[in-house]
Design a protein around this nucleic acid. Structure first.
Lengths: 200, 200, 200, 200
DNA sequence: AATGAATGAGTTTTCATTCAT
DNA sequence: TATGAATGAAAACTCATTCAT
């Protein structure tokens, strides 16, 4: 009798529950760090009981992994979208890419740091399978094909461009100069352009 | 024979004890990760009692911080030394710097990762107060004074050069291509040079 | 037979568990002192795991605080009950109150000492927000309204009456003369009565 | 050679060193409580090394005991002195005694609490060997001999007078009304007088 | 007498995970 | 599926005390 009424609201679609848990975890990890966040806090944030967490994730580490996947996908989509939307020259595309990177990164640095900076011996690979780099490589290659620039090692160049942008944004952040995004984007674009322009 | 050496005083100069503890901690952290290493293991490794650890460090975190300092200093000394030892042109100095960076980093990646990859909200500053960057800035400014190149924002440029090198080495490492250091140094040097050469 | 009772759920109503923990703690504290009792012993006494203690109390200190609350409430209830049950004159009520105080205190000295004798800077207030005093104040005021006595400072008087009783019982206890409760009650009552009778 | 010069200032008369240690301990105990004070802090306060502490006291508890002795002596001397200095009637002496008690207590409550409130099963005796009570008893007996008042149980009365005064001062302290010592002394004296005046 | 580095037993506390309901 | 009380292993850290100098 009472069963029909009670059952309903408690059970949500698995996907939804899982997302809610991930959202709660992400917010807390970003606020206090991974190690400093307890499962107890995550479930509190998601409004479920302790045990429920373990129906969706095998361990605390697993949520972090899931979060990482989600972040990578989102970042790549955003940057790739900006490049695709640009119908100018290759240099224009490069500029669009730099701008998208800076903005996407700035918008989500904390999250970025969270999902990437957990040291465990031998997780270096993560950074390089970086989809933004992959996307950059593609663009560099196409641009090269079109004669926009010449590159000895496209992948390494992409990685260095990415590293340069990364460093610039980190610097801006640590100096509280990230608010002036235009200047930042300007500096990065200028640097990238130079780096790709072989001195005659 | 050895008796005389062994017998002498359980008490050692503070500096020595501290270093022994740091060495033991560093070895363990690099082997199993920071979180997975217990203070109990560290003191066992250093051959002292639990309490002794706490006469030299306030907490486990503090050793990591000390290790970071030690790493940074060593890295900077190495790079600065290489630049100072180069008596060629500014471009030569730049090259010497790039080479020293790549080599120093490659020689101590594991340690580098250990001391830098622990995410805690708001430790971002560390990277930018990076003494290698500071050293680079100095060099860039002097080089600019000497007319070797022209820079709009020296610090940001230095930071991007550093980021580029960092990314390149990370990439090489993750692809197991770090063995061919010459190529790597070559790629970095070429990239740096371009980045500093304003396209006319 | 007994199986049904025993088997049922390792989980007990929160209130019950909490009380069991408090009981175990109280017994041990009274036997060996607060500092000399470890949480390990408490949980052993209560038949639960270490962690369970911390589901109910934030720290060892918190149990002591809870014990104090419980003691104070019990004491007040007992005294207030005795006064309410007395339907004689105001002097009779005063006498009932004195008697109840002496008896209640004598019955639980050890516990009293346990919960009150832990010196920590600034816990003095506890004594004065003493609900027995509050109850005494009420009685004194009502009695005054009824013309039983006249008081310049009711609260201070209540506090002094309480102090007098407290001192008398402490004295009796330390001299092992507490067995003769009648005499003790007599002395306290006589003293209280005098103290409230303004010499004409 | 160098011995003569170096030795001098380091070694102080034992008595002095001991006092310095007691002073340092007392200050710290009063500020943060006995348990919360470490031997390390005591020796720091006294400006000596860890080991020195143990040349003068066998343990941390022993300092507290020494402090208690010192407090008791000082308090008794002060009250007894005030009574002796009063050459009026017995009621005057009583008044002088009450005043001295209140003042001495107010001046050293924290210390009083420190040395008396440390609960360990069975240290109740301490309070009753209270020298002020003993002194009060003497005065009450003499006054009774001189016909100033009549008492059934002098010691118990003394103890109750002491308890009353104690309660009054505690109350004043917890209400921050201790500054107005005159009123406080007045209330206590009035109460004491009444308590000693048998209602005809 | 004085030192202070070293000790290490002992304690509190945390928290990821389980499991009976 | 959801719950949340219970678990208990594991860890960090403290500090009174010792003792070689």
């Amino acid at each position: 009798m009472t069963t029909t009424t009670t059952k309903r609201s408690r059970t949500k679609p698995a996907e939804v529950r899982r997302d809610e848990l991930m959202d709660a975890a992400q917010a807390l990890f970003m606020e206090k760090g991974f190690a400093a966040t307890s499962v107890a806090e995550i479930v509190e944030g998601a409004g479920v009981a302790k045990g429920t967490f373990y129906t969706y994730f095998q361990s605390k580490d697993e949520v972090l992994a899931a979060l990482r996947e989600r972040f990578i996908e989102g970042f790549r989509d955003r940057v790739a979208g900006a490049v695709d939307a640009c119908h100018g020259s290759w240099m224009d595309k490069l500029e669009a890419c730099a701008e998208a990177c800076v903005n996407a990164y700035l918008d989500e640095v904390v999250l970025h740091d969270l999902v990437f900076h957990q040291y465990q011996p031998g997780n270096r690979a993560l950074k390089s399978e970086n989809p933004v780099v992959t996307c950059l490589v593609g663009m560099l290659r196409e641009g090269e094909g079109a004669g926009a620039w010449r590159l000895v090692t496209p992948r390494l160049t992409a990685v260095m461009l990415f590293g340069a942008f990364h460093g610039a944004v980190d610097e801006a952040l640590s100096r509280d100069e990230a608010a002036d995004r235009a200047s930042l984007v300007g500096a990065v674009v200028r640097f990238w352009r130079n780096a790709l322009t072989t001195a005659a």
